[in-house]
Amino acid sequence: MEEIKKIIKECISGNVRAQEKLYRMFAPKMFGVCLRYSRDRTEAEDNLQEGFIKVFTNIDSFRHEGSFEGWMRRIMVNVALSKYRKNNILYPVENIGDHDMPQFSDNIFEKFGAEELIELIRQLPERYRMVFNLYVMEGMNHQEISEMMNISVGTSKSNLSRARDILKRKVRDLYDEVKLNSNLPA
């Protein structure tokens, strides 16, 4: 903790070595965050770079009141959100009603690794991906999400529901495919 404070202090004074040290400490974790919010790896790298530049430019505004990692994470999420707002591309998606989904055992998700789950999230339409990440990973409620994304609470709820449905369908298709190919025990 004290070490982080010292590194932050040195970063504020523009010490490049301290900046590199801080980057090496947090970059892998922040890259994991960026990967969840991005369409692909390249976009995640861009977001990570932009996020770290914002971190170093605004590091003097960190008040040491919460965790530094949490502060950085919010910056990474904000970078992704501001890009989303800027692009603001809406993907009209076929209405998939909950009743259309067959009964689904969520244990099936347990059979996938983190990278595979991230890959599934990344394939979601942009707005669904944002809402899913903000709700599930950042623990925000629909009111907060609606304010951040400038959408209605209803839309946020609907987007989350559709994101879940898409993920379930994808996992089921993928699981069936893998099971057929490798006779993986269910």
Partner: peptide, 9 residues
């Protein structure tokens, strides 16, 4: 599964 996920950039 994703909370502590890390990957080297």
């Amino acid at each position: 599964k994703l909370e502590g996920f890390q990957m080297d950039p």
